[in-house]
Nucleic acid binder design. Structure first.
Length: 275
DNA sequence: AAAACCGCCTGTCGGC
DNA sequence: TGCCGACAGGCGGTTT
């Protein structure tokens, strides 16, 4: 489901709700959620503790406890992490995890496709979580410069889009924002990464920064399942220009938006604007 | 090295 | 109506 703007919105909405509440009980309904820990060990690590910080790196959420432990959660395609106060919320189908706090606050993970993952780590080292340890520079990081983007693209014959989706090169971009960034910069997603001109790299760099920061400002894209930590939808779907718009008219030139598979993912583009 | 392919799951949609 | 395949904000492991 979520890309960087959605995970960041979840982080912001949950942060002020869950920090400092004492954890009473943990309930794992889908054990395969747990990657490097069993239910008993997880429950023991959480009981009586409270969260001190909620961080994000790429599409990972990192919850710090008032111990040397941290929970690392990845929502993958359909994971929804929400916090609700009170006992009245009925259990949704596909609930994977409940963390109950002493004051009837509950943190809940609902995940229709069950791809979400949870690791328990005991220091700042994330070596056991490859995707986290190898995370590339994020679009809003100050070291995400046109020069950095150029270095990631040059010499590669793979489609530029597949490089944008590679989390080891750029952290946090996914299928929606890769397509939107390529549209804004007028670059065909299947163009070989190494063949981009300096001018195109500059435009792509600006487009990525702008798309990601605008999407955060609009609290993410609720195309299908995504909700934030309050269970609320985002609004960036109203601003999408190509993603999911096959057959629609391009707002810029009037051409019909096309779709093709690139790197195994549906890719939406305007054949006129993205020559 | 790097790129393609498959699997993980459940649900929805469109075509026949 | 129902059956069947394609597809879905992701990514890790395996094969080529």
């Amino acid at each position: 489901m979520p890309e960087l703007p959605e995970v960041e919105t979840v982080r912001r909405t949950l942060e002020h709700k869950i920090l400092g509440h004492k954890i009473q009980k943990t309930n794992v309904l889908y054990p395969r959620l747990l990657q490097n820990v069993d239910e008993t060990e997880l429950a023991d690590a959480l009981k009586g503790r409270y969260f001190t910080k909620l961080a994000r790196k790429g599409k990972y959420l990192i919850t710090h406890l008032d111990s040397d432990a941290k929970l690392v959660i990845h929502l993958r395609m359909t994971g929804q992490l929400t916090a609700t106060q009170g006992l009245e919320t009925p259990l949704e189908k596909h609930t994977s995890l409940q963390i109950h706090f002493e004051d009837e606050l509950e943190l809940r993970l609902v995940d229709q496709r069950k791809f979400a993952t949870l690791h328990l780590v005991y220091n700042s080292e994330f070596v056991g979580i490859k995707g986290l340890a190898q995370m590339g520079v994020e679009p809003l990081d100050e070291s995400f410069t046109p020069q950095y983007l150029k270095e990631q693209l040059e010499g590669r014959r793979a489609a530029v889009k597949s490089v944008l989706l590679d989390q080891r090169r750029i952290g946090g971009l996914g299928n929606i924002y890769a397509d939107e960034s390529l549209f804004r910069s007028g670059i065909f997603p299947g163009k070989p990464a190494g063949s981009l001109t300096i001018n195109e790299i500059q435009k792509l760099h600006t487009a990525i920064e702008n798309v990601i920061s605008e999407a955060i400002r609009h609290r993410g894209t609720s195309f299908r399942d995504y909700v934030d930590g309050d269970g609320q939808q985002g609004s960036f779907q109203a601003r999408l220009q190509v993603y999911g718009k096959e057959g629609d008219v391009c707002q810029v030139c009037g051409q019909i938006i096309a779709r093709m598979k690139i790197a195994g993912r549906s890719s939406y583009y305007c054949a006129d604007c993205q020559g």
